[in-house]
């Protein structure tokens, strides 16, 4: 992806310095707020509520322990994991076959399906929580982990379809055809040739689905009461919870997502880039 206009030829020293400084400032702009959150989460509650703040944390797990021990937190964490896991499984299992079909076949209705997928982009999807709340009451899925996972899957599915579509499209069809001429049927060719090649990408798209669900607030808050996920729990305790609970909660919310993103960083651009075209 080396596309750039060549900045080095004829570039002055001053220009290079201001370029470097701008890049570093932008890095700080991203990193400092995260540092401050984590610094807060690793400070004792007294320091978190005290004033003025120290820039170095006291490194003390009291806030985190308080958060974990707080009524409803472990349950919310568990709900979050369940919902995110279900979302991940459903998004990949439903999305990947569609992505494969789009990449390998020409058929009537293909563009209609693509339009439907792209339409989901132009709609504020969290609003789906409203009608779903009513639908779920009718079928007994209200306030359930599974019900929320369905809404989150709607959020994650279009991405899963487009990402797997680009993954499958990236694998030359000749590889599959070669397998067919060497004695495989369609399923065998898929299992022996295509699947091993897309597995890392599928894993990355699964992680994306997981993070999508893990981070979602609005639908989770509207659709759950007893089975609140962590974001829904935090949202509802914003008014009355002490500061150290919020910051510890925020840190617990942020860290897994960062970790996951680190593992899929290689796929970030191919996925978001292509999926968004």
């Amino acid at each position: 992806m080396s596309t750039a206009p060549n900045m080095v030829v004829g570039q002055s020293k001053a220009a290079r310095w201001s370029f470097n400084i701008a890049v570093i400032l932008l890095c700080l702009w991203v990193l400092v707020p995260i540092y401050l959150l984590i610094s807060n989460a690793l400070s004792a509650p007294a320091d978190v509520n005290g004033f003025p703040k120290k820039l170095l944390p006291s490194v003390n797990t009291e806030s985190v322990e308080f958060f974990i021990g707080f009524y409803g937190v472990t349950k919310a964490l568990w709900s979050s994991v369940q919902v995110a896991f279900l979302t991940m499984v459903m998004a990949v299992l439903i999305g990947a076959p569609a992505g494969y079909a789009l990449s390998r076949f020409d058929f009537r209705g293909k563009s209609l399906f693509r339009i439907m997928i792209l339409m989901t982009r132009a709609f504020p999807l969290p609003l789906l929580a409203l009608p779903m709340a009513i639908m779920f009451i009718k079928v007994g899925l209200d306030d359930t982990v599974f019900g929320l996972a369905i809404v989150h899957t709607t959020l994650a599915l279009p991405f899963a379809v487009l990402i797997t579509y680009s993954l499958f499209s990236g694998i030359p069809i000749e590889l599959e055809e070669a397998a067919w001429t060497l004695g495989c049927n369609r399923l065998q060719a898929f299992i022996k040739v295509i699947f091993p090649l897309v597995l890392p990408g599928i894993t990355a798209s699964a992680i994306f689905a997981f993070v999508t669900s893990w981070n979602e607030v609005f639908a989770a808050a509207v659709l759950t009461i007893e089975n609140r996920t962590l974001p829904a729990f935090l949202l509802q305790s914003l008014d009355d919870a002490p500061l150290h609970l919020k910051f510890a909660g925020g840190a617990v919310l942020v860290l897994p997502a960062l970790l996951f993103l680190f593992f899929v960083r290689k796929y970030l651009f191919s996925m978001w880039g292509i999926a968004n075209r």
């Binding site: 890049v23 932008l26 890095c27 991203v30 990193l31 707020p33 995260i34 401050l36 959150l37 807060n40 993070v211 893990w214 981070n215 979602e216 607030v217 974001p231 935090l234 949202l235 919020k246 910051f247 909660g249 925020g250 919310l253 942020v254 997502a257 960062l258 996951f260 993103l261 680190f262 960083r265 970030l268 651009f269 978001w272």
Partner: peptide, 23 residues
């Protein structure tokens, strides 16, 4: 640099709000 600049992709809007609350 790209990894650093894309970190906020993984951060939920609620967490972002809490982060800026700390400030």
């Amino acid at each position: 640099i790209l990894y650093i600049w894309t970190i906020p992709l993984g951060i939920s809007d609620l967490a972002a709000g809490i982060i800026w609350l700390a400030i």
